[in-house]
Amino acid sequence: MTDATRQDFRFFHRLRVRWAEVDMQKIVFNAHYLMYFDTAMADYWRALALPYDTTMQALEGDIYVKKATVEFHASARVDDQLDVALKCSRIGTSSMVFTGAIFRGDDHLISCELIYVFADPATQTSRPVPIALCDILTGYEAWEPMARVELGTWQALGAAARKVRTEVFLEEQRIPVEMEWDEADDTAVHALARNRLGLPVATGRLLQHAPGVGRIGRMAVNRVLRGSNLGRDVLRALMQAAADRGDREVLLHAQRNAEGFYARLGFLPRGEPFEEAGIVHIEMVHALPPGYQALVGTA
C-alpha cells in the first residue's frame, strides 16, 4: 500500500514517538514500527467493542500472527505524533489480512500487511474464521455501529447488567456487595450496551431524584473497553430517557477520576467533593432544555 491515504481507513490509533524508540540516526528503530502496529491492533479490538479474552473464549479459538511485512517510505523521529491506521482488507477460510499504514499528518511513512490465522488454542491448528467474527469485521469496515444500547427494566436487563456491575464495582473497585445492590434497581430505567456478539459491555441506570430531576448512576463499562465511547452512549441514552419523561435536569455522583469524562459531555460540578463507598466523588449536573435530543451512536 505505497499510495495509502487517511481516507482509506476508518480506524486510527494515535501515539507519540518516545526517546527510547529512536536509534543512533535519531530516527525510529525499524523494529518499533511492528510494535506500533501491534499496539494499534489491541485498540482495534476495542473499536469493535470486543474484549479480547472474553471474545476468544466465546468464539472457542484464538488468533495467531502468520506473517508480518513492513515497507518503509520515510522515517519518524522523536516526539513525532503518529496515527497508526488499520483495516481488515480480506478474510479467507482461516486467515485474516490486515492492511496498515502510519501517518504523520497526511504524510504516509510506513506500510504494513499483517496476516493472522484463527486457530484452536490448545493445538494451534487452524480453524475456519467464525461467521460472527467475519460479520463484525466486515461491518466495522463498512462503518456500521459495533454496539447497541437498549433501555428497559431490571427484570428485562438485570441479568446482563448485573454481570457488568459485578466485574466493575465488586471485583475491580472492591465496593462492598451490600452497597451495590438496592431496591432502586426495581424502579429504575436501565441502559445496557451489548456488542455484536451479544455480550454485555456497559450499563447505567436512571432514577427519579426529584420532580423534574433525574439521577444517573451505576455507570459501568468493561475495563478493557473504556475509552471506546460505550460509556458516552449509555450516558446519552439515559439522558434522552430523562428528557423524554419531562425531566429538566440530570445529576450524577462522578468518581473524581471520571470527572473529565462527564465534563466533556457537558456536565458541570456542583458543591464540594465527598466520599461515597470509600471513593471520592463530586456531584455533577446537566440541564435538559425543552426538545433535548442526545446524539446516541457508537463509532
Rank of each mutant, 00 (worst) to 15 (best):
E71M: 12
E71C: 11
A68D: 03
Y116A: 13
H73L: 14
V65F: 09
V70M: 13
S75E: 06
I91W: 01
A76E: 05
G100A: 02
S89F: 02
C88D: 07
V70C: 12
K87P: 00
V97L: 14
A68H: 09
A85C: 07
V84P: 06
F72M: 07
L109F: 00
A74W: 05
G61D: 05
F103I: 06
I63L: 15
G100R: 06
I102A: 03
V70I: 15
A74K: 10
K67H: 15
T69F: 09
S89C: 10
I115G: 04
I102C: 03
C88P: 05
S75P: 00
D62K: 10
A68G: 05
D80T: 06
K87A: 06
L109C: 02
G92H: 04
V117G: 05
K67L: 11
E60Q: 14
F98V: 07
H108F: 03
I91H: 01
E71N: 14
S95Y: 01
V78Y: 14
L59R: 01
V97Q: 13
D106N: 11
A76Y: 01
D80E: 09
Y116R: 12
K87F: 02
S95I: 01
K87G: 03
A74N: 10
E71Y: 09
A76K: 02
V78R: 11
F72Q: 03
C112L: 12
D62M: 11
F103G: 02
I115S: 09
R90L: 10
I110G: 00
C112M: 14
V84M: 07
I63D: 10
V70A: 09
Y116D: 14
R77H: 11
R104Y: 04
E113R: 12
D62L: 10
I115P: 00
R77L: 08
D79H: 10
G61P: 01
V65M: 09
D80I: 07
S94F: 01
F72W: 10
K87D: 03
S111N: 07
G61S: 05
G105I: 02
F103Y: 03
V117E: 03
R104F: 01
H73D: 05
Q81G: 12
C112G: 12
L114P: 00
V84E: 08
G105Q: 05
Q81V: 15
T99P: 01
S95T: 09
G100S: 06
E113K: 12
